[in-house]
Write a protein that binds this DNA or RNA. Structure first.
Lengths: 345, 345
DNA sequence: CCCTGCTCTTGAAACGTTTTAGCATCGCCA
DNA sequence: TGGCGATGCTAAAACGTTTCAAGAGCAGGG
């Protein structure tokens, strides 16, 4: 209540209740002990408005009951969804989650790892677009306290939740081919990132398996953002109007692309079919609704949280674990196929 | 490096360098002292891979150099923008920011305040949609360590950054009237929240000042989300096609509304002009681009961070401070007026 | 009446830092 | 040469908890 004077400590409570600080600690932390003392202590706590100092507790217990999630871009709804899943999982186990967004700023990932080494947090879940050798080494150094979401080198000794995004991309493109589309563009995200590479591979693989030529002019790279998708459309169409489908490396890109397509009066899906990736909420209410490949962000978040918390509680095996989840194609309006739709005007 | 054995402590470093822990502390925390010892200590630190334990430091220093931002919904881009502004401000001053989203869950705000009282964080910036009497009292109790973004009762003794959103709403509606629109609907957010009330007041005030009747059937409340905006359109139009403008309580709502309007084939701005609030990035690239009222989220964030950090550093006056920023109307395509546009078809 | 085995409670030692008071050491000036 | 500030260092006391060994009561059994 009164903010002027310092907060009461366990010593004040002990004095007031006429017991030792050990007893107060017991009352605060356990259910045991006789009702009488307990009552007295609780009264003292209430009267003094005592709140245990978590910093001191953490020092003694050597744990903060706090974990952090590091994502590349908190503006991307898919990470928000993942964060929510992790948050819930953490909370159930008595941990707090704090959220950090690196926003492509150099050093931010290291900054987050500093937090871990400084013992500010017990553990870290990190999604990195570009896991450099140096970063992976550092992660391996703290592997008892970290879980990576997203691809890291096969031999890396860290708990890791990944998704077969190559397979997902391939499925998306295959779906477009199945729908009768023949000239399929690809709008990718930031080049030289792992997700960009895996998705490109999936795109290529689908075309090759169908005996189609991969035309590099049909691939445009930019960034994983709505603006990226918006800007990619014009170069993609430059002098090429036989394009009848576009696969986007994620939904946010796809929504940006969709905007530009509508501005240009290009019908989706009549003229061009569109498929994204991630399955964000927005895609369910866009016009047209967006076909996509769910990469199970919530589930990956949940799994990562489980792996991490298991490790923190010491119930994990010594070696590192890798979980791979399988993406799921979700067909909505933006890729209705020729068969159902009829030949485009 | 080696995660098996425990991290080195300052004692290990002291031993290795053959000095006392006090000296190590000095080397770590200041530039002073002779080069020779410093060198020796730094070598020991490097060899042992020593990282100071921040928890112990916090306990001794009685501060964590960490602040938290509590927002109602991290999925709303306006809060992401605010978070980024605060993050930057905090970082410049050596503070870390951790982000919490209450997501309308009961008790989440109290949960955040617990963090403060437990000394997990030094300070808190909180955006509350519904500052109950109880919450405000609690905030007042820790007013040396907290700053509120958004309206709280005039007499509340807390640092407070607010925006004249009533004025902003009024300006938006006035702008629609100036453009020749006469029947203006209002899609509001979650009822019984402060922002919903202030915006409704602004809407009413604009109509009244122009001698127009306020028709309650033109006001639909839902929630501050895209889905809320989407769902509000049908009831708003129910048997009423003279509607020629809609004001939305925020941009996210407006984007949802825009989607539904397009689905229904209602031209924006030809048939219906649309104005939102918040000035989120998405509004700049939507089709049509979205007219809005900027509530200066970044600036409010920056100001709140300044107020809070000033207080934490003890350089703030005893009494609480209130800053009010003035919103700014931003006209884009979605509200092009009749004059420029001509009579709708 | 003493011993045994409980349950509660206490005092003190951590946890890993920062910080303060005081002690050497040193060069310098008178 | 003796005294005197600087300067650098150390020892020890915090910071506010948890935890552990040991003591204090107490009841019950022999």
């Amino acid at each position: 209540m009164n903010d002027k004077q310092k907060r009461a400590t366990i010593i004040d409570v002990a004095k007031r209740a006429g017991v030792s600080i050990g007893t107060v600690s017991r009352v605060v932390n356990t259910q045991a002990g006789p009702v009488a003392t307990r009552q007295r202590v609780l009264e003292a706590i209430a009267e003094l408005d005592y709140v245990p100092n978590h910093v001191a507790r953490s020092l003694k217990r050597r744990s903060t009951e706090q974990i952090a999630l590091v994502v590349p871009d908190i503006a991307n709804p898919v990470y928000v969804a993942m964060a929510k899943a992790i948050q819930q999982e953490a909370k159930e186990r008595g941990y707090r989650l704090s959220l950090m967004s690196t926003d492509d700023a150099p050093g931010e990932e290291d900054f987050a790892l500093d937090s871990l080494e400084q013992r500010r947090v017990d553990g870290l879940i990190i999604c990195s677009l570009k896991p450099t050798k140096k970063l992976v080494e550092r992660l391996e150094g703290v592997r008892q306290r970290v879980c990576v979401v997203g691809r890291v080198p096969e031999e890396a000794q860290v708990d890791n939740v990944r998704v077969d995004s190559t397979g997902g991309a391939q499925a998306a493109v295959q779906h477009l081919l199945d729908g009768g589309r023949r000239t399929i563009g690809f709008i990718n995200g930031a080049p030289e990132t792992v997700p960009a590479e895996t998705r490109l591979t999936g795109y290529r693989r689908a075309l090759e398996e169908n005996g189609l030529q991969v035309d590099d002019k049909l691939v445009v790279s930019g960034e994983f953002s709505m603006a990226g998708g918006y800007r990619a459309i014009d170069p993609l169409f430059a002098g090429r109007n036989e394009l009848d489908a576009i696969f986007c490396a994620n939904d946010v890109i796809a929504l940006g692309a969709l905007r530009r397509l509508r501005e240009l009066g290009i019908g989706v899906p009549e003229q061009v079919a569109l498929v994204g990736m991630d399955d964000i909420e927005l895609g369910k209410i866009s016009t047209p609704t967006l076909s996509t490949v769910s990469l199970l962000a919530e589930e990956r978040g949940r799994l990562a949280a489980e792996l991490l918390l298991e490790r923190l509680l010491g119930s994990a095996p010594d070696e590192s674990r890798k979980i791979t989840v399988t993406p799921r194609l979700i067909v909505r309006e933006s890729s209705t196929d020729y068969i159902r739709h009829g030949v485009p005007a």
